[in-house]
Design a protein around this nucleic acid. Structure first.
Length: 813
RNA sequence: GCCCGAAUGGCGGAAUGGUAGACGCAAAGGACUUAAAAUCCUUCGGGGGCGACCUCGUGCCGGUUCGAGUCCGGCUUCGGGCACCA
């Protein structure tokens, strides 16, 4: 009587394929449980991927048993650099390698027996799918959200491609880890900044980890301040700056322009031009990494001055690369007394420092460093004596009155660089006509198919490989029918994943991205499971897309994911599993050796789901042994109900109590998603009822069958087989999640800890309903020896928990 | 530099302010076996005692409380995010 998992798992996988475990009837509450879909890499899935998928599968199966109508789909994010880079390194066409990788990953997922609805499988590289990816882009273009711009962009020489701001972290390419440089290119941009405020406000109502919300709001980076105009001496022009500290305006003793600022050439005095050009060129050539690593301030005086609009003093205009061209106005007013960077710059170049805020009670001495705290205004004319925090508001109003500035708001968020110079992506459905300019491909002609080519290697020129395919590039203009050329850049990997969750609701629709009805039924996503690495990429882009689709009336909700859960990574030797480190554990062998149920349960047992965990090859033995014991236990006792001798009812009441308690605990733990403790709970409970069954020579049917149902979401095969062995013809997933009765879960006797001065000194078993007086009397008796010679100052009684005597030695009095 | 987390046995980890170390791994001893594997039983934070027991113990220093792994203040170390955003 051994547990033959190979046979059992094979058997049920086959049966489930014909009769998928999927809730189907209407009239139930709908529940949309979604995994972040993977890009199908060549190395397949490892045990780290399984972690999230097991979690969402357990949750889906639990909801099915609770009677929900569950949508749990899966698909493939198959366009983009990772897929293309893999294809290039493997020397095969991306379409071929992608298809292979999808097939392999799908096989792995099916070996997990996840309840994915494969009838809804989607693939971002399917023309029927990317037709709608292109459609959304066209709608954005028509609404003025997509625009073309030539500007210095993040360029990765290794990927030979531009990167979005979000894809360049710490000056390094998010994809390949190589340094990013700036390159002047004409690119398509999406005006995500137009949604900055709504993307920020929308976070409030989301049930997401605080960490992710914070990362998004930091990324959007809203700051309140003022724009101020500084007149240029000897010119009628002025320089506009953005500052969050209008209260420090009297302390502005110089200005700095970014090297890329448009006025740099004009303001540079004749004798300094050559040197300035050199400085600007050097600054532009620095990679982002160098620019950040090399924090020593450099800069050059233009030879021109501006006028401080409040006190009329002449202040020098400098150029330095510590000012960013693409934030604010690309120019700043510098208040060295109250800004660390300005202080450093002023010290280095001998520029004046005027303190305008004094820390309350601090002596009036020269500043050794910038003071950035609050305080009282000094050297600020009529504002002297005011608190700086209040002066901020007053002075902003004052400058509005004088007409030299106005209150404003700025964001760190930049527009989204949306075009890529690579082959393996959705073609951007636009046409460049010499006469008509940029013309959209008519919606009726979508999708614009990605042409089949022999050579898809990236070029270094900043142009897509598609530019070489003349017969594809050259078209007639849809408007004037004259000669025109297709846009040859493709969309970034994020395009297809920014809306895929909508398509699952209605994956085969040929007329719309999804029908109103289907969207209404399923969206927004109730539960979204995935890694934290997409905190500001995919999750921000998806929210932007959803808000746009809401605005054009395509969907009637404006946040796509109601609840987000980030599962922790699975590490090995303290580092992330990755193919390049060679520390990847493949689930395939483990399934072969221990079975899918064991691996599923071990993935949960390994640690708290939201925390990173360390993979231990031997740990899986524990759950494997547990499942074997459970198997033997059920098989041994399925035909041994409690005998008639136990008619006094004691054993069945005991089982009833244990059962109700366990259902209560497991349900609570499942709702909390503390799934590691669910597994330990099963181990303890099964051991306990096995012992009792042995003790009494049997176990009641309900207790045995409840165990099987409760196990079903976690270890579906063994549960289904045991369910069948206990004489049921219908799937265990047609059962209902068991309820419990709090009254029946109650213990008659409770164990109470006995303490003296907070230290444990004994235990006491008392009836649950014992009165406080009786409990204290019993406790006093139990500790009588220890209490001798002490005076009891206080007795603390916490029912069902603890009795504490606060005492003092008699002779101390 | 700024902003988040985290710190508990040999290891993964458990513990609504109430009996710290559940559950599992590893290790040691035993049973079964010709033997091994598998399985089952026992032990398993440190120190002390023949012993029922005593004592110390949740990164460090303080505080609140009858009682702190848990709450508060100040550190240390590690991990993550952002990083010249004016």
């Amino acid at each position: 009587m051994t547990y033959n998992f190979t046979e059992i798992e094979k058997k049920w996988r086959n049966i489930w394929e014909y009769r998928p475990v999927q809730a189907d009837s209407d009239g139930k509450t709908n529940f949309y449980c979604l995994d972040m879909f993977p890009y199908p890499s060549g190395s397949g899935l490892h045990v780290g991927h399984w972690r999230g998928y097991v979690l969402s599968d357990v949750l889906s199966r639990y909801k099915i048993l609770q009677g929900y109508n569950v949508l749990h789909p899966m698909g493939w994010d198959a366009f983009g650099l990772p897929a293309e880079n893999y294809a290039i390194s493997a020397g095969v066409h991306p379409a071929v390698s992608t298809a292979q990788n999808v097939a392999n990953a799908k096989r792995q997922l099916q070996e997990m027996s996840t309840v994915y609805d494969w009838g809804r499988e989607i693939n971002t590289t399917d023309p029927e799918y990317y037709k709608w990816t292109q459609w959304i882009f066209l709608r954005m273009w028509k609404h003025g959200l997509a625009y073309e711009k030539e500007m210095p962009l993040n360029w990765c020489e290794h990927c030979k491609c531009v990167l979005a701001n979000e894809e360049s972290t710490g000056g390094v390419c998010d994809r390949c880890g190589n340094p990013v440089s700036k390159k002047l290119l004409r690119q398509w941009m999406l005006k995500i900044t137009e949604y900055a405020d709504r993307l920020l406000e929308g976070l409030e109502k989301l049930d997401w980890p605080e960490k992710v919300k914070k990362m998004q709001s930091d990324w959007i980076g809203k700051s309140y301040g003022a724009e101020v105009d500084f007149k240029i001496e000897g010119s009628d022009k002025s320089i506009r700056v953005f500052t969050t500290r209008p209260d420090t305006l009297y302390g502005a003793t110089f200005m700095v322009l970014a090297p890329e600022h448009e006025l740099v050439g004009e303001l540079t005095a004749a004798g300094r031009r050559e040197e300035m050009e050199r400085y600007v060129r050097n600054a532009g050539a620095k990679s982002s990494v160098d620019r950040m690593a090399d924090r020593e301030k450099t800069g050059m005086y233009t030879g021109t001055c501006a006028i401080n609009p409040f006190n009329g003093s002449r202040i020098q205009i400098w150029v330095s690369d510590y000012v960013l061209a693409d934030y604010g106005t690309g120019a700043i007013m510098c208040v060295p007394a109250h800004d660390e960077r300005d202080f450093e710059f002023a010290k280095k170049f001998g520029l004046p420092i005027i303190q305008v805020i004094q820390k309350e009670g601090a002596p009036e001495t020269e500043l050794a460093e910038a003071y950035t705290g609050d305080g009282v205004m000094i050297n600020s004319h009529i504002f002297n004596g005011m608190k700086a925090s209040e002066a901020k508001e007053r002075m902003a109003e004052h400058m509005e009155k004088l007409g030299v500035g106005k209150k404003t708001v700025r964001y760190k968020l930049r527009d989204w660089v949306f075009s890529r110079q690579r082959y393996w992506g959705e073609p951007i459905p636009l046409i460049h006509c010499e006469k008509c300019g940029v013309v959209p491909v008519p919606e009726s002609e979508l999708p614009v198919l990605l042409p089949e080519v022999e050579s898809y290697q990236p070029t270094s020129t900043g142009e897509s490989p598609l530019a070489d395919i003349n017969q594809w590039v050259n078209v007639t203009c849809p408007q004037c029918h004259g000669p025109a050329k297709r846009e040859t850049n493709t969309m970034p990997q994020w395009a297809g994943s920014s809306w895929y969750f909508l398509r699952y609701a209605d994956p085969h629709n040929k007329d719309e991205l999804a029908s109103r009805e289907a969207l209404k039924k399923w969206l927004p996503v109730d539960y979204y499971v995935g890694g934290i690495e997409h905190a500001v990429l995919h999750l921000l882009y998806s929210r932007f897309y959803t808000k746009f689709l809401y605005d054009i009336g395509a969907v009637d909700f404006d946040e796509p994911f109601t609840k987000l859960f980030n599962q922790g990574m699975v590490n090995r030797s303290g580092v992330k599993m990755s193919k390049s480190l060679g520390n990847v554990v493949s689930p395939d062998e483990l399934v072969q050796k221990y079975g899918c149920d064991s691996l599923r349960m071990y993935e949960l047992f390994i640690g708290p789901p939201e925390q990173d965990s360390e993979w231990d090859d031997r740990g899986i033995d524990g759950v494997y042994r547990y499942l074997n014991r459970t198997w033997k236990f059920v098989c041994e006792y399925k035909d041994k109900p409690l005998s008639a001798d136990s008619a006094d009812g004691v054993p069945s009441r005991e089982f009833e109590k244990l059962r109700n308690k366990f259902i209560r605990d497991i349900t609570a733990r499942l709702n909390n998603l503390t799934l590691n403790t669910v597994v330990s709970g099963f181990m303890e409970y099964t051991a306990k009822i096995s012992d009792d069954a042995r003790k009494w020579g049997g176990i009641d049917k309900e207790t045995l069958e409840t165990l099987i149902i409760l196990l079903a979401p976690f270890t579906p095969h063994i549960a289904e087989e045991l369910w069948s062995l206990t004489g049921h013809g219908e799937s265990v997933f047609k059962q209902s999640w068991p309820g419990y009765d709090e009254a029946k879960a109650k213990d008659d006797l409770v164990t109470v800890g006995l303490q003296i001065n907070g230290k444990l000194r004994g235990q006491l078993q008392i009836p649950d309903s014992e009165s406080e007086g009786a409990a204290l009397a019993a406790a006093r008796a139990a500790l009588s020896k220890r209490l001798e010679g002490f005076r009891v100052l206080k007795e603390v009684y916490v029912p069902n928990k603890i009795i504490n005597f606060v005492v003092k030695a008699a002779q101390e009095e």
